[in-house]
Simulated assay, not measured.
Amino acid sequence: MELIDNTREVFRRDRVWAFMLPKPVKVDVAKEIILYIEDLSVSFDGFNAINNLNLYIRDGELRCLIGANGAGKTTLMDIITGKTQPDSGSVWFGQTHNLLEHDEAAIAHLGVGRKFQKPTVFEAQSVFTNLELSLKTNKGVLPTLFARLGASQRARIDEVLLTIGLTEQRDQDAGSLSHGQKQWLEIGMLLASDSRLLLVDEPVAGMTAEETEKTAALLISLAGKHTVVVVEHDMEFVRSIARTVTVLHQGAVLAEGTMDEIQRNKAVIEVYLGEEQADSETATAGVAQ
């Protein structure tokens, strides 16, 4: 036992791990843009999943992406995170990091995190351990097996627990959490890994009304310090959080603006929202005014 304790002390994260880690990533956002996507195209068996797409995301903003199934939302996220290589175009993280030159692991290290629709947490591990495993630390065998958390790492995990509202569940197995709590934990794992750009796919699918409301508050609170891009089909949820909405159609940007502007856009009405829904939304807005 003494040998194990001594080994854990040697590998304390707050003492020796700093020199074992890659250098901190610097993202140049001097022009206030954190994600540049230009002339992006990719096709699969003759189908243009992304078609000459141009998109710019400001540093610290909360952006919503909407569009019918097949509009290119998932493919776009796959390209940003290195899962899919495009046929042409460019994707830059800040002004200095060409994401198309990096694999998935390297892109994650740069600070681009992705939360899939279905939560991917370690269900047999506690909430605390899930966050601990997500910390940006050396992932070698010995450090992983023997490392002891330092005060700064524990404080960081406590901070994330408070942010995602799971402080009381810190010692609970992740598998016993509700669906909404698992979604929050996965967002917390991105925060623990120091992700600066969060790509969040359908965060409220399957949630209760109360969980949906809490998720909206969480995502809004993250904007500013983080850049948050949300893909969602629930238009009421999008309206509750959106500052800027981008509509994708056939792999390209169809429209962009506030939710009110999007719902009054004739092209969007024709291809996505539908005349009846748009009329209903406009009438509701008129009554509210």
Rank of each mutant, 00 (worst) to 15 (best):
L3N: 12
I4A: 15
I4S: 10
R8N: 10
E9G: 02
R12D: 15
R13P: 00
W17C: 01
F19T: 03
P22C: 02
P22G: 06
K23D: 08
K31T: 06
E32A: 13
I34W: 07
L35A: 11
Y36N: 07
L40V: 02
L40M: 00
V42A: 07
F44G: 12
L62W: 15
N69H: 15
G72M: 02
G72N: 02
M77G: 08
I80Q: 00
G82A: 04
Q85S: 14
D87L: 08
S90E: 05
H102D: 00
A108P: 05
H109E: 07
G113K: 05
G113S: 10
R114N: 10
K118M: 13
P119G: 11
V121Q: 10
F122C: 14
V127D: 05
F128T: 07
E132V: 11
L133Y: 08
T137A: 14
T137Y: 06
N138E: 10
K139H: 01
R148G: 05
L149C: 03
R154S: 14
V160M: 09
L161C: 11
L166F: 14
T167C: 08
R170Y: 14
D171G: 13
D171N: 15
Q172Y: 10
S176D: 09
A192V: 12
R196W: 02
L197P: 07
L198Q: 02
L199N: 07
V200R: 01
E202N: 03
A205T: 06
T208C: 04
T208P: 00
A209M: 02
E211C: 12
K214V: 12
A216W: 04
A217P: 04
A217M: 13
I220W: 08
I220C: 11
I220P: 01
S221V: 11
V228R: 03
V229A: 14
E232F: 03
E236P: 02
F237Y: 03
V238Q: 13
R239Q: 12
R243A: 12
R243P: 03
H249Q: 08
H249R: 00
Q250Y: 08
V253G: 00
A255K: 05
E256C: 04
E270C: 12
V271M: 15
L273W: 00
E275S: 15
D279N: 13
T284F: 13
